[in-house]
């Protein structure tokens, strides 16, 4: 799967969590722009993990602040 495919799939996964319909770009941050609290993060991460059959550990989550970093991380985990 290439980055564009992964990006498309994550975009559709994020929709139900993007309550305010914030425009998503690579630099959109989860904490500030999307206002995700810890519960939302858990549900959102679980949705991505299930979609791609991967684990994104808390250690890895700590490195991910914006949308682009998430797509990159999922690409990397997919190809490992």
């Amino acid at each position: 799967m290439d980055r564009v495919d992964i990006d498309t799939r994550i975009r559709s996964l994020i929709e139900p969590f993007n309550k305010k319909g914030v425009e998503i770009s690579d630099s959109t941050t989860f904490a500030t722009d999307l206002e995700f609290d810890s519960l939302t993060v858990m549900d959102f991460v679980a949705a991505i993990e299930d979609e791609f059959d991967i684990i994104i550990s808390m250690n890895q989550q700590a490195e991910i602040e914006n949308y682009g970093q998430l797509v990159d991380a999922v690409c990397k985990l997919q190809n490992d």
Binding site: M42, D43, I55, S57, M58, N59, Q60
Partner: peptide
Amino acid sequence: NAEIVPFK
């Protein structure tokens, strides 16, 4: 230093 994986 372990990988931490929480579940619901």
